[in-house]
Amino acid sequence: MRLEIKDLHVHYGKIEAIKGISVVVNEGEIVTLIGANGAGKTTTLKTISGLRKVSSGAIIFDGQDISNVAAHERVDLGISQAPEGRGIFPGMTVLENLEMGKFHRKNRKAEMDEDLDKVYTLFPRLKERVSQAGGTLSGGEQQMLAIGRALMSRPKVLLLDEPSMGLAPQMIANIFRIITEINKQGVTILLVEQNAQQALQRAHRAYILETGNVVKEAKASDLLNDPAVREAYLGTGAHS
């Protein structure tokens, strides 16, 4: 498994939101994409999962250019996204949401129980609330559901869009711990985050995105100690 984005450009109408970025995600890695509001993080993930069209450039997955593959077919290839702002189905129960995560698999009955168990092991809270409507879950629980549902499709690469958004500090730590756990189980992860501190601690490598451009690419641990990065994204200057 290898995901490679080559000189990607993406437009919203005439506005160019992504201005030629290149990103590589290798098998087994956690790669994080950090950047300020409006930098283009969500747009990048949406383009990888097929919700936005590529203007130019390529998305190469397992050696195949998937730029023109429809979104619903990319799930079959092994790309799964937990969308920004949770994006669960509010009118479906927790269980129905999780089952939707397996929608694309034809023989889903056979794998269903096994994969539900896996998700419940990662998120015991979800098991307690199987028949509760998604829309009535707390923010943290919704985030768990979105990640759990994305895992139901047995992805090779998991795209996470700001899983820590709007969560209490304790819950944030919990979510990041689980992300590492998922990665250890063999799922490659591309993680978009505003919480650079946590993201950089958990990731192997990182890219910094500014207004549609990659301005820095490095090992995550190096960025954690980079004074300029600390100043801009960690809220602590070099002197502190």
Partner: peptide, 10 residues
């Protein structure tokens, strides 16, 4: 309920 998310589910 949500077209985009439906597409993400395949």
């Amino acid at each position: 309920q949500d077209e985009d998310v439906a597409a993400l589910m395949g």
